[in-house]
């Protein structure tokens, strides 16, 4: 199963590379790469968040073993997404980046989401999980604000037709709503 997830996780990147070498990224290739890597970061974050509900609903606990890999793929795409901004948009102009992050809430949201994902990727090793113990779980709740900020980043980028980001917002609402509901139910029980 891990092999399957690995292939699936790499597929969007391979597809982008293929389109890049075949000149089929459209009139604005950089924008296409930015958009696709951002979308996949968000989709894979959602997939990571979907594992727990799926395990509970299907009872197939072995699914939990691929959660880390999906999460790391989400981080990979987020890193690629941020890199296009860092290199192609701003070309390491840290002062301009800092201004952009501080001034434009759209950038602030996306940047914060990325920063929140860094400690999660860093502490994803077995050794770190053991070392952090109970606090590991607490730390990894940062995925919630990261996903929320990712969706906000998407919403604020769109000029007018918000259909697509709103679909993402709805999916996230279901994923988070499930957790809130199951917690409320377990408290009552």
């Amino acid at each position: 199963m891990k092999v399957l997830v690995f292939i699936a996780g790499l597929a969007p990147l391979v597809r982008l590379a293929w389109r890049g070498t075949h000149g089929s990224l459209g009139a604005n290739p950089v924008q296409t790469v930015q958009f696709e890597t951002g979308l996949w970061a968000l989709r894979l974050l959602f997939a990571t968040l979907g594992v727990t509900p799926l395990v509970r609903l299907t009872g197939r606990s072995e699914l939990i073993r691929v959660r880390r890999m999906i999460g790391l793929f989400a981080f990979l795409y987020a890193t690629l997404h941020f890199s296009t901004y860092l290199v192609l948009d701003m070309f390491f102009d840290w002062k301009a980046i800092w201004k952009d992050v501080a001034k434009h809430l759209w950038i602030t949201a996306g940047f914060s989401a990325f920063v929140l994902m860094i400690p999660l990727a860093v502490t994803s090793t077995d050794a770190m999980i053991r070392r952090l113990g109970k606090r590991w779980g607490q730390l990894h709740r940062l995925i919630y604000p990261a996903a929320i900020l990712g969706v906000i980043h998407f919403l604020w980028l769109v000029k007018k037709d918000k259909t697509e980001p709103l679909i993402y917002a709805a999916i996230l609402a279901i994923l988070l709503g499930y957790r809130i509901a199951s917690r409320l139910l377990s408290q009552r029980a």
Partner: peptide
């Protein structure tokens, strides 16, 4: 004058890599 949501200082010409 920035767009309220994004910067207008630079632009990317269609087909170009950098702004």
């Amino acid at each position: 004058v920035d767009h309220p949501r994004w910067s207008q200082k630079t632009e990317r010409r269609l087909g170009d890599l950098f702004r």
